[in-house]
Amino acid sequence: MVDRFLRNEGYFRIFHAANCQEALAICRTDKPDIAILDVMLPDGDGFALLTSIRRFSAMPVLFLSARGEDEDRLLGLGLGADDYMVKPFLPRELVLRLNMILRRVYASPTVEHMPVFGLGNYIVDLEGAEVRSEQGVQALTAKEHALLVKLYRERGRIVTSDALCQAVWGDDYFGYENTLMVHIRRIREKLETNPSSPEHLITVRGLGYKLLVKEG
Rank of each mutant, 00 (worst) to 15 (best):
D38N: 14
M1L: 13
V168N: 01
N19F: 03
F174I: 07
P32A: 13
L6V: 08
D70S: 12
L79R: 10
L180A: 02
G68F: 03
Y173C: 12
L201W: 00
V95D: 11
S197T: 08
F12T: 15
L64Y: 13
R97I: 00
Y209T: 07
I101D: 02
R4L: 11
P88S: 10
E71K: 08
E9W: 00
V137A: 06
D72M: 12
S52F: 03
A129M: 12
L41T: 11
L102W: 02
R7P: 05
I101C: 04
H183G: 02
H183T: 12
D172L: 14
S197G: 01
V39T: 12
A23L: 09
G10L: 09
L77V: 04
P88C: 12
V2I: 14
S57K: 03
L180N: 04
R185E: 14
R28F: 07
A25N: 12
S196D: 14
S108Y: 08
N99R: 15
I123A: 10
S197H: 11
G136I: 09
G44F: 05
F89E: 05
P115R: 15
V213H: 04
E69N: 13
V105S: 04
K87R: 15
D72N: 09
G44Y: 03
A23H: 04
V168E: 04
D33R: 15
D38G: 15
R7T: 04
D171V: 11
Y152T: 07
R73G: 01
A129V: 01
F12A: 15
I158S: 12
V182S: 13
R157H: 13
Q21F: 01
R28E: 12
L151C: 02
S161R: 06
E189S: 10
N99I: 06
L6D: 10
F5N: 08
A107H: 11
T29E: 15
R103V: 09
D82L: 03
D83Y: 09
G156D: 05
R185P: 00
Q138A: 12
G136F: 02
R97F: 05
L211N: 01
E192I: 00
D38E: 13
G136D: 02
T141Y: 01
